[in-house]
C-alpha cells in the first residue's frame, strides 16, 4: 500500500478528484457530468501536447520545447486555410499539419545540434519565426474547419467525448512506447545519465532528434484538432499551451531533472488544471483571484509532490 501511495502520478488524480468533488458539492451536483465531459475534451488537448513535452523533458536538464504554441498556431492556420472548409481536403490538411510539425521539429533539432544552442533558446527563437510565419500566412482570416473535423472533435459516445477516447488510446500507445520499447528506454536512460547512456551504446543524438520531432509533430496534430474544435484557427490559440504543457508534465509526476516520467499522471494533471479553473469559476471568483489561486495551488501541489517523492 505504501508503495502505491508513493506513485508520482497519484497526486494529480487525487487533486483532480478533490477539485471536482468540491465543485459538485458547491453546485449540489447539478452539471457535474457536463463539467466532467468538458474537462475530458479540454484535457485531451492538454494531453496531446504534454505527451510530447514529457518525452522532451525526460531527456534531462535544459531540455524543453517552447515552440509548441507557435507550432500549433502554424499547423492550425495553414491546414485550415488549405482545406478551405472542404471535407474532401481533410486528409491533405491532416498530413499538412503533421508535416509542419515535423518541419518545426527538424528546425528545432538542427539549431540544437548544429549550432549547439541550448534547447530553451533554440525552440524559443525558432518559435518567433514560426509565429511570424503564421501571422503572415493567416492575415487575420478565420477559415471554418471542414464539417467532419468539427463533428469529430465535438462528438460524444454515451456522453464521453470521442476525442478523449482517442487521446486516451494515444496515451496508452505512448505509455508502451516509453516503457516497452528500445526508444523509450533510451530516452529514460539519457535523462538519468547521458554519458552512461552514450557509453552503453545508446545513440544519444538520434534519440534526442526523434524526441524533438515527435514533440513538434504532436503539437501540429493538436493545432489541427484544436482549430477544428474551436471553429477555425486563431493566432493566439497556442498561447496558453506554453505554460500548461510544462505544468501538466510536472504536476503529473514527471521529474523536471529528467529520467523519470509517467503517462497516467498527464491525464490526471490535465483534468486537474481544467477542473481547478472550472471550480474557481463556479465559486464566482473574478479573473484576478482565479489566476492567483491557480498559481498558488500549482506551486502547492509541486511542493507537496516533491516532498513525497524525494528518493535518491
Amino acid at each position: 500500500m505504501s508503495g502505491r501511495l508513493r506513485q508520482p502520478w497519484l497526486w494529480a488524480w487525487v487533486g483532480a478528484a478533490a477539485v471536482w468533488l468540491a465543485t459538485a458539492a458547491f453546485t449540489g451536483g447539478t452539471g457535474s457530468a457536463q463539467v466532467l465531459s468538458a474537462a475530458l475534451t479540454f484535457g485531451a488537448f492538454y494531453v496531446i501536447v504534454a505527451l510530447g513535452q514529457m518525452f522532451v523533458i525526460t531527456l534531462g536538464p535544459g531540455n524543453v520545447d517552447l515552440s509548441i504554441p507557435a507550432c500549433m498556431t502554424l499547423a492550425g492556420t495553414v491546414s485550415m486555410k488549405v482545406m478551405g472548409g472542404a471535407a474532401a481536403m481533410l486528409p491533405v490538411g491532416l498530413v499538412l499539419a503533421l508535416l509542419i510539425g515535423l518541419g518545426v521539429g527538424t528546425v528545432n533539432f538542427a539549431l540544437i545540434r548544429l549550432l549547439r544552442i541550448p534547447p530553451i533558446i533554440a525552440t524559443l527563437s525558432s518559435s518567433f519565426i514560426f509565429q511570424s510565419a503564421a501571422i503572415w500566412y493567416n492575415r487575420g482570416l478565420r477559415v471554418k474547419p471542414p464539417e467532419p473535423l468539427a463533428d469529430f472533435t465535438t462528438a460524444r459516445i454515451a456522453g464521453v467525448p470521442v476525442i478523449a477516447l482517442a487521446v486516451a488510446a494515444l496515451a496508452v500507445a505512448m505509455h508502451l512506447l516509453l516503457t516497452r520499447t528500445l526508444y523509450g528506454r533510451a530516452v529514460l536512460a539519457i535523462g538519468q545519465n547521458q554519458r552512461a547512456a552514450h557509453l552503453a551504446g545508446i545513440r544519444v543524438e538520434r534519440t534526442r532528434a526523434l524526441t524533438y520531432l515527435m514533440c513538434a509533430t504532436l503539437a501540429g496534430l493538436c493545432g489541427f484538432l484544436l482549430a477544428g474544435f474551436s471553429g477555425g484557427a486563431a493566432l493566439n490559440m497556442g498561447e496558453e499551451y506554453l505554460l500548461s504543457s510544462i505544468a501538466v508534465v510536472v504536476i503529473g509526476g514527471t521529474s523536471v531533472a529528467g529520467g523519470y516520467s509517467n503517462v497516467p499522471g498527464l491525464w490526471g494533471a490535465a483534468l486537474f488544471l481544467f477542473l481547478l479553473v472550472t471550480m474557481l469559476n463556479t465559486f464566482g471568483a473574478g479573473a484576478g483571484v482565479r489566476l492567483v489561486l491557480t498559481g498558488l495551488i500549482i506551486i502547492g501541489v509541486i511542493v507537496a509532490a516533491s516532498g513525497g517523492r524525494r528518493r535518491i
Binding site: 489566476l291 491557480t294 498558488l296 506551486i299 509541486i302
Partner: peptide, 15 residues
C-alpha cells in the same frame, strides 16, 4: 525546479 515554481508565480503575478 525553478522553472515550475516561477511558472506558477507567473499566474499569481498576472492575477
Amino acid at each position: 525546479p525553478s522553472i515550475v515554481v516561477t511558472l506558477g508565480m507567473s499566474f499569481v503575478w498576472l492575477g
